[in-house]
Design a protein around this nucleic acid. Structure first.
Length: 275
DNA sequence: AAAATGGGCAACCGCACCACC
DNA sequence: CGGTGGTGCGGTTGCCCATTT
């Protein structure tokens, strides 16, 4: 039996654990029991629900299964560049507040975002031989990764992006630190309806405790002629650990394509010069 | 072709918080 | 005020599968 690509064995008899709680992968039968029960009675009071539904599972297990997998509005599939961008930005703002971040990605669960971070993002940090929490990596994320995401999204949508939706309310947001780059916005991919769309813009900076840099701009979206000093940004350049790197040429994300290595050999080499 | 390795992801665990009694 | 149950969160584990050797 197969559910969402995962082979499930419903033939494993509980045997001596018949009266005990089951653990491990859910069977289709269990899924159906849970879905049917919640459809009729609603969710909440998960321990009671588990008993009444005839599931030999803990309430926690039922809740997790429902919220992360069975809920009708759970959105599955690859994390889109728009979502990636939002995750990066919200994480820079809130850190490992996965549930809070997930609230702003409709259909995505905290578990999914957490897994994305741990597998994809931490992998990139590993390639750069630095910690995800290090300034080096955060700067790389801000000055290289995110601008490229913006460009990628912009290119995919025919450069007709508009800052249609502000980021979700953020109590820590500080209006005085606006990024002067309203064009660097990401709209939802075609096909997603407006209420589900994940839209980010960068008119205001993430107010992150951990981010040591200013939030003036993404180098990748700097308009010609701008040359700020003292904030780690120049037109087309990114300052990482004190060194200046030409953004568009030195960091070519497009070569590998999204989902593969974010950093090419040159990226790694230049980053390592500054360690 | 088989074994080893690594990545991705579902699920579990421990803890904290809150409401209720 | 302390105990208990329910809930939510972040961290971790373990399984499955694809890729590499």
């Amino acid at each position: 039996m197969e559910v969402h690509g995962r082979v499930l064995s419903s033939a494993t008899p509980p045997s001596e654990e018949e009266m005990d709680l089951r653990r491990g992968p859910w069977t289709v039968e269990e899924d159906l029991k849970l879905i049917n029960y919640i459809t009729v009675h609603g969710d909440g009071r998960w321990n009671t629900l588990a008993r009444c539904a005839g599931l030999k599972r803990t309430g926690k297990s039922c809740r997790l299964r429902w919220l992360n997998y069975l809920r009708p509005d759970v959105r599955r599939g690859n994390i889109t560049p728009e979502e990636q961008l939002l995750i990066l930005e919200l994480h820079s703002r809130w850190g490992n507040r996965w549930s809070k971040i997930a609230q702003h990605l409709p259909g995505r669960t905290d578990n999914e975002i957490k897994n994305y971070w741990r597998t994809r993002v931490q992998k990139q940090a590993k390639q750069l031989q630095c910690d995800v929490n290090s300034k080096k990596f955060k700067d790389a994320m801000r000055y290289i990764w995110m601008p490229r995401l913006v460009e990628r999204i912009r290119a995919a949508s025919g450069s007709s992006l508009q800052a249609s939706n502000p980021l979700p309310d953020c109590p820590t947001e500080q209006p005085g630190q606006a990024w002067p780059c309203p064009e660097s916005s990401a709209s939802a991919p075609a096909g997603s309806n407006s209420s589900d769309s994940v839209v980010t813009h960068f008119s205001s900076p993430p107010a992150s405790d951990s981010f040591t840099g200013d939030y003036h701009n993404y180098p990748g979206c700097i308009q010609g002629g701008e040359n700020k000093s003292g904030d780690g940004i120049q037109a087309g350049f990114a300052q990482l650990d004190g060194g200046w790197y030409e953004n568009r040429e030195m960091f070519d994300f497009e070569q590998g394509g999204w989902g593969e290595n974010l950093w090419n050999l040159e990226d790694n080499w230049f980053m390592q010069q500054e360690v």
